[in-house]
Amino acid sequence: MKKRSVLCLVLAAILALGLVGCGGGSSSAAAYPDQAIELVIPASAGGGSDIMARLLVQIIQDNDLCSQVITPVNKQGGGGSAGQAYVNSKSDPNYTIFTINDAHTIASNVSETRPEGGFTPICMLAKDEVLLVTKADSPYQTMDDAIAAIQANPMGLTVGCADQLDKICVFDINNSYGVEFNNVYFDSAGEIATAIMGDHVEFGIFNPSECASLVEGGELKALASFSTERCAAPLDDVPTFTELGHDDLVFAMSRGIMGPAGMSEEAQKYWSDIFEKVCATDAWTKDYVEANGLTPTFMNYEEYTTYYEENEKNLVEKIAVLGE
């Protein structure tokens, strides 16, 4: 008899625990979202995409913008394809969102992780300028120096690239100036910077956030930027390619948020609204966008859908020409 009552007590305890644990997942079709959401970051921890994504989550949490927990998940590899493949594999398209930039867009087409009909655009967050950078005390102090050097030594100077997008930039430079820079793949901007400072490669393609502190610290020097106007300090003394007479070299990486194929319009609008609020906060504009030399550009899901379609077509054409 005693044993049985002990048994019952323990059973009751387990059941109670189960109910408590149940609290996280609800079974009724409540308001969207009613589960935790995954924010997939198709890049390794510590890089530009990762910092931005985690900050977004932080701002959402600080301002109580979402009732559910958003869990950032890193899925690096293949220039973004690994993360996209992971997103494609998720069974419920409404509870995953992911960050995307132009490099990932290219990868999705090259590696065929782009699903039928494409991903679901949610919003654009910002534009990231692109710069050609070299070591601070290198013999190439201006773009002209660099061009002269590569003309004397075709394929003898190397530009470090962290993704296919960077390779397109080098390709464009080569076409516009009629020269032949060599390019080498690196896993991250940090590694390119290390390689430049160690004299293993001569140049690199960077976003402002990836090189600003090193430029300020006197280790690196930017030669030219792909932006329409000059970048913010400390890169404001860097000429744009347009100023140097090559206005075909205008480009900026866009960073946005997308959802998997098949995401509902309700979910799409929901996230577009949330991120619109995020982009209006001080924490975003002052502490992140300005601090990192980004150009704040918000596009909601309708505008972004149009932009993305055109941008993707443009990039795919260039990549096909590149023969990659």
Binding site: L7, V10, I14, L17, G21, G24, S27, A36, T71
Partner: peptide, 27 residues
């Protein structure tokens, strides 16, 4: 029962409650 219950509680507290790892399934 007791061993299973104790271990289950510990695992739940550490991995689900504290580290907030999203596990599949119902519980």
């Amino acid at each position: 029962f007791l061993i299973a219950a104790i271990v289950t509680v510990c695992i739940y507290l550490i991995f689900d409650f504290w580290l907030k790892i999203p596990f599949p399934g119902l519980f």
